[in-house]
Simulated scan of single mutants.
Amino acid sequence: MPLERLFRFFSSLRLTVALLILAMVLVFIGTLGQVTMGLYRAQHEFFRSFFVYWGPPGASWRIPVFPGGYLLGSLMLINLVAAHWRYFRPDWRKSGIVLIHAGLVLLLIGQFATDLLSVESTLHLREGEAKNYSEMDRHVELAITEATDPARERVVAIPHRVLQRQGEVVVPDLPFRVRILRFHPNAMIAQRTERSTTPPPATRGVGPQIELKPLPHVTEMNKRDVPAAVIELLGAEGSLGTWVVSEYISQPQTVSVGNRTFHLTMRLQRIHVPWTIRLLDFRHDRYPGTDIPKNFSSRILLTDPRNGTEREILIYMNNPLRYGGYTYYQASYDPDDQGTVLQVVRNPSWLTPYVACTLVSVGLLLQFSIHLFRFSKRLSR
């Protein structure tokens, strides 16, 4: 029967060995790929994908050449469940094996959930500064801020993934549509000179005075891409012009439509929360007579108007703040020791590895105890 042969294939020990070998090869080539691609791109190319693709330099096509981390993980999960279903027979003496397999299944599922659901960002604070948002290091957003009423600021943010599609975005409360004409994952902005031969990238704002130069992806760990986009605003009567938006353009670009005024800004994508964190004091302790860091910590004030929370908390290495589903780690600091950088992680499945490891440990201990008891009983006879 075809289904029976397929079931035996997915539950075979040979498939288990083959998947483990392929996983070791993937880890090896993925580690080498970090040298040229950088850590974050290598993670997505090798481990957070179903296939590893290859294509000639400069070509617009790529072909799958090796299974990726998602595919190998899915096959391992299927193989584990199928093998357990095929070989397991109900017996209390194998209860430890059941717990071990359940822990491994939960570990694989938890890793998938972590990759799909977890979000990392950073919170940079100077002493005395307060924020209710963190910023994603490698994603940007186009912020359209209405500045008609100085007492009330309204912001519409178009996230990174929408900008990449290079389509048209319609926001009901805006008097214009936003069309993304071009999106560059990494680009440099330079001032136009008399020697400039390329036409201006845009007609409004700073567009006529600058040059837009696309750059290759950055692979260094301490650097990142700076995306840029060319957008067109479409009003009720047609085009309002084109603009270049980039983090290199520090001042907001103004757009007036009727009696309403808007500012265009490209910035790091923000994750807003309903509470506020204020940095009260940052400490950077060093070993006496050296510049070697001994400890650095942040004393913050957490204010949550939803439940009236207002308390001081000390965040330092290996002692993060967990609040509202977010975890704040002490990550870095400013060179003048007057500011801190907190890594913010939201991972709904953060408990699954602990539960999985507990199940595996209990299963091993239980299975060992059962065999030890049976052996001692036979020995006494």
Rank of each mutant, 00 (worst) to 15 (best):
K223N: 15
G324K: 10
P56I: 01
R224E: 03
Q166C: 12
I97M: 07
V345T: 06
P199K: 01
L22I: 04
L268E: 09
P353A: 06
E141H: 07
W350H: 08
V155N: 04
P335E: 03
L3T: 13
L117S: 07
Y328S: 01
I271Q: 12
E141T: 12
A356C: 05
S196W: 10
E312L: 06
N132A: 03
P56L: 13
A102Y: 00
V178L: 03
R8S: 00
R306E: 02
V170C: 06
L240G: 10
V170N: 08
A23P: 06
R138N: 02
R270Y: 14
P274K: 12
V35M: 04
W85P: 05
T203F: 08
P159E: 03
L108E: 03
W54N: 13
R182K: 14
M266W: 04
R154C: 11
H160Q: 09
L75Y: 04
G235N: 05
R161A: 10
F66I: 08
H101K: 09
E4L: 13
R62Q: 15
I189Y: 00
H101I: 05
Y133K: 10
K94E: 14
T219H: 13
G167S: 10
V345I: 14
I29A: 04
K213Q: 11
I313Y: 06
V155I: 14
I29H: 08
I109F: 11
G96H: 09
Y328C: 03
V206Q: 05
A130H: 10
T340C: 04
I21N: 09
E146W: 05
P57H: 12
L13I: 01
G33D: 06
S49T: 15
I231T: 07
T327K: 14
A236L: 15
I249Q: 08
T290K: 05
M24N: 12
F375T: 00
T309S: 04
N347A: 05
V206C: 01
V169L: 11
F373N: 15
A143F: 13
F176H: 00
A147N: 11
G58I: 13
F9G: 11
S376R: 15
R374K: 15
P305M: 04
P252K: 09
V226Q: 15
S196N: 04
G363W: 13
T303I: 03
A147E: 03
L142Q: 00
S12R: 01
I180A: 00
E247N: 00
R48Q: 12
R378M: 13
L116Y: 12
V98L: 01
A130D: 10
W92L: 07
F296P: 09
L321F: 15
L26T: 00
G324H: 01
Q269P: 02
K94I: 08
T261G: 11
F88C: 12
G238Y: 10
S246Y: 07
W92Y: 05
T114P: 03
R154P: 12
K294E: 09
E135D: 02
T340M: 01
G308Q: 10
M24T: 15
Q43Y: 14
L108H: 07
H101G: 06
R138W: 00
R93P: 09
N132E: 04
A83I: 08
Y133M: 03
F7I: 02
A18D: 08
R224I: 02
G128R: 01
P252R: 14
G69L: 01
I277A: 00
F373G: 14
P353R: 09
Q34V: 14
D281C: 06
V17R: 12
R161P: 11
E146A: 10
P175W: 03
V341C: 11
L364T: 06
G258E: 08
E129Q: 14
T122K: 15
